[in-house]
C-alpha cells in the first residue's frame, strides 16, 4: 500500500514546522527576557500564600469508573469508522442495519447498567 502513506509526508513536514516554530519562540524568548532569580520567586506560587507541605498532594480520583466506561465504549466506537464506509454499500443494507442496532443495543444496555448501578453518580 504505497499510496496510503503518501499524504503523510506533508503531515510530517508540518510537524517539523511546528517543532521549529516552538524552538524559535523559546530561543527568541531566551534572548529577550531578563533572568533575575531570587529564592522567593522560585517558590511555587500556588494561590499566592507560601505553599504548605508537598506539591503533589493526595487527592481522591473520583472518576476512575468513568475511565473504565470510557475505555470500553471508545474501543467499541472506533470500529464504527471503518464500518461506516461500507455499511450502505449495495447488497449490505438491511443486514448491516440490523447489526448496527445490535451494536447500539449493547452500548445502550451497558450505559443503562452503569446508570442503574449508580456509577454515573458523582460519589
Amino acid at each position: 500500500m504505497p499510496d496510503y502513506f503518501h499524504g503523510y509526508t506533508v503531515v510530517g513536514l508540518v510537524a517539523v514546522v511546528g517543532v521549529l516554530f516552538v524552538c524559535a519562540a523559546f530561543a527568541a524568548g531566551r534572548l529577550l527576557r531578563p533572568v533575575v532569580p531570587t529564592p522567593e520567586k522560585m517558590l511555587t506560587y500556588e494561590c499566592g500564600v507560601d505553599p504548605v507541605g508537598e506539591g503533589w498532594a493526595h487527592t481522591q480520583v473520583r472518576y476512575y469508573v468513568y475511565a473504565f466506561l470510557y475505555v470500553v465504549f471508545a474501543v467499541d466506537s472506533v470500529f464504527l469508522f471503518p464500518w461506516s464506509t461500507v455499511f450502505a454499500a449495495p447488497g449490505y443494507g438491511a443486514t448491516t442495519l440490523a447489526e448496527m442496532f445490535v451494536f447500539l443495543g449493547f452500548l445502550a444496555v451497558g450505559l443503562l447498567y452503569a446508570y442503574k448501578k449508580g456509577v454515573l453518580e458523582w460519589t
Partner: peptide, 12 residues
C-alpha cells in the same frame, strides 16, 4: 509575554 522572566518553580 516575550519580555517577561520565565520562571520554573524550584519544586517543579
Amino acid at each position: 509575554f516575550a519580555q517577561k522572566e520565565d520562571i520554573v518553580p524550584e519544586g517543579a
